[in-house]
Design a protein around this nucleic acid. Structure first.
Lengths: 224, 224
DNA sequence: TTCATAGTTCGAGCTTAACCGTACCATCGC
DNA sequence: GCGATGGTACGGTTAAGCTCGAACTATGAA
């Protein structure tokens, strides 16, 4: 009776097509300017401005002002998780044939999800890290092993960032396309490492992550 | 660009306060009549009827006609999962003080979530079943051990129902209040067993599950 | 200073949809 | 058969909110 309206406020914020387009565009964790968001939503800047104000006061987005540019970003990974859940549901709920995942095979293979790797490769990464006992799964939080600590250091990933705020951050979330867990939270730092090593690169317009041929073999090699 | 509207359709269905109240009222997995749902939403039957039609065509609800009564139920546990995710987010997202779970301590202790036990007791159940090796966690699906099979039979739970459609059903979902996994899917049959044994009973108006004093001790005893 | 760009605010138009009153249909009990 | 109850269909009203044009502010460049 009282939590109904609670969720309806959030849902109605996502329920507008223009706002939904903006939010999905921000799903990759990047910050976009108001004009860019207006473009992806197909509306004028004035309209976009009011939408962005609503999303900000609704605590779905945060605004960061740099000079005359206003950058907007998803507030945290919690809202990203909500959006992924909705996407997953919408995907399976479409009338007609049922699909088990995103249409685009590339999206299913590897994509960015807020700040971490998702898709088949994300699940592979998660499994491999556990298998090699670099991480261990205590109940439902994930922690570094001493063995893993050494490996990550060699790999050039800052252990500090992994450990910094590892409390709410060592969370696993269900993968959209594979219905399996992949690595979320602070361990997204691994993603930066992959970029730095140029094993992967981002698609400019979508959430797809491409592996360089050499990068992929080295990625597999690293994890076996 | 194209999945934005996809999720906005779902979200706008949940985004109406009256509909959100209906959906949360159905979160316990029971089927309610149109009149009952009109009452919980605080609207007339006519208005409720149009809402329910929209929710049904949107594949969020299923309608079951029995005589002159129309019963409505959540379509599947996927939509229940979406609603739980939204509730969790709304709870943590409220302005002012942050709360880690439902306001009501009873709700946090034990509540019904679609067709299974959630809350502290749900997490306890999940942990205990794994610890006793009645279930085992293979990757992210949960299966019965031979040991567990015997125990459940003694306990009077139909193994068939547990096994029937165990594919998409052995799913774990994040608990709303505890941020831990509890048992979902087909193993909700365990819940029926608890009811049959009269260890637990339901609150009439809320999702709260109460333990009978004797039931609680026997529950603990069973799981140790 | 002057101009251009990025963004917000205000006001007005317009569409959508939630809501209820009335009327209508189906089922159950008598 | 009849009345009572549960539910839907339709029409009109009202309110909300999405949208954009125009005006205004702030930053940056010439």
């Amino acid at each position: 009776m009282k939590e109904g309206p609670q969720i309806s406020i959030i849902a109605s914020l996502i329920g507008d097509p223009a706002r939904a387009n903006m939010l999905t565009a921000l799903m990759d964790g990047r910050a976009l300017t108001a004009s860019e968001l207006a473009a992806v939503a197909g509306i004028t800047k004035q309209t976009a401005s009011t939408h962005l104000a609503k999303l900000s006061t609704g605590n779905l987005l945060v605004r960061e002002v740099q000079g005359r540019h206003h950058y907007f970003r998803l507030k945290d990974e919690k809202i990203a998780h909500v959006l992924e859940t909705l996407m997953s549901f919408a995907e399976h709920n479409t009338q007609g044939r049922v699909r088990v995942g995103p249409k685009d095979p590339a999206l299913r293979k590897a994509r960015i999800c807020y700040d971490h790797l998702a898709g088949e490769q994300g699940v592979f990464l998660y499994d491999a890290l556990l298998k090699n006992q670099w991480l261990y799964n205590d109940k439902d939080t994930i922690n570094l092993t001493s063995k893993g600590q050494g490996i990550f250091e060699i790999f050039g990933i800052d252990i500090e960032t992994l450990n910094k705020n590892r409390r709410p951050i060592c969370r696993t979330c269900l993968d959209w396309s594979m219905r399996r867990h992949h690595l979320a939270g602070g361990f997204g730092a691994i993603l930066s490492g992959l970029f730095d090593k140029k094993w992967i690169y981002r698609d400019k317009t979508t959430r797809i992550i491409h592996f360089n041929p050499r990068g992929e073999t080295q990625f597999k090699k690293w994890l076996t």
